[in-house]
Amino acid sequence: MSIRDVAERAGVALGTVSNVLNRPDKVAEATRKRVQDAIDELGFVRNDAARQLRAGLSRTLGLVVLDVGNPFFTAVSRGVEDRAAQDGLSVLLGNSDETESREAAHLDLFEQQRVRGLLISPVGDVYERLRRLGRRGTPTVLVDRLVEDHPYSSVSVDDVAGGRLAVEHLVQTGRRRIAFVGGPAGLRQVADRRTGAEQAVAGSGASLEIIETDGLVVGDGHAVGAALAARAAGERPDAVFAANDLVAIGLMQSLAMLDHRLVPGDIALIGYDDIDFAAATVIPLSSIRQPAELIGRTAVELLLRELEAIGSGQEVEHEQVVFQPELVIRASTAGQV
């Protein structure tokens, strides 16, 4: 059913139906009721997407995350959606799966859909693409990424400080042969957490072994855990800092299958993100906590400020919000050396 069908059923002009849909205060109550009755009888549903395109003003935001299967990004997305809904905005979610090709495909789609604004945790060098979107009036805010040399607002956590917190805790518990497990190394979050770990061992008398993984899922931790379990006891690290909780959970599963006493007695284990599952593992997992939902909500706040500035013809001021991580100590790092 179209707006023309509604006008014919109600016996009014097309413009009257349009006013009922968009400016009901301009229509007399009796006429408004007649049009609404026709809408109900015909089952008319307005084509809001077409209306937004004609008006040049979308009510949709685009969000691209690294891994929607990671509970951390699920929580970030929840924060984005909750805050966007307060302003009557909807969210299109894209999962890059940490691959540049999928990231590019989502950006293509969001550009075609003329999203109002973009939130992204980037994989590759997308900044030229983001500049193009900006020239068309679509601002971008980077999520879970600190931007230093590009003109974009961002919301992030100090991952260098988080990596340092994790390894300082391991050193304070007497661990000296520490391994950092995570990858790919080109991912900014992984690189920053590794940098913090390196800073923590400097001058501490501890060593840091780097074990790079292809990704940041449970299976990657499983594989590394099996390899560590196959080593002779004296060749294993006495502590592991995993780049996120999913990798840490995979490590714990492999090591526990060999001997449940390995963690934390022989190998202390700490993750990153403090997802809900961290406290519920067989051996509750120590972790570095990030305020995931707050990150999402704050990113939308920054985007709304930029949209308001653009709409009023003011100069856009870019902001960088950096949250501090928090050490959460549980049983996985509580064993004796």
Rank of each mutant, 00 (worst) to 15 (best):
D82Q: 14
R102W: 05
V68L: 15
Q112M: 11
A84C: 03
S96C: 04
T99K: 14
R116F: 03
Q112R: 15
P71R: 04
E111A: 15
S58H: 02
A55Q: 13
L53T: 03
E100L: 14
F73E: 02
R54C: 09
Q112E: 15
N70P: 05
L63M: 14
E81W: 00
D82R: 14
F110H: 02
S101P: 02
L53P: 02
L109A: 13
V68T: 10
A105T: 05
Q86D: 13
V91S: 04
V76T: 09
V68S: 11
T60A: 12
A75R: 06
F72D: 01
L61E: 02
R78D: 06
G94H: 11
L109I: 09
V91M: 07
D108S: 07
L93I: 15
R102N: 13
V91L: 13
D87E: 13
E111C: 04
N70D: 12
G62M: 02
R116W: 01
D82I: 10
A50T: 11
E100R: 15
Q113I: 09
V76N: 08
Q86H: 10
Q86N: 08
L57H: 12
Q113S: 13
L61A: 03
V76A: 06
R78Y: 04
H106W: 15
G94P: 06
L89M: 12
A75Y: 01
N95P: 03
A50W: 09
G79Q: 04
D97L: 11
L93E: 03
L63P: 10
R102Y: 06
R83N: 07
E103F: 05
V65C: 05
L109Q: 09
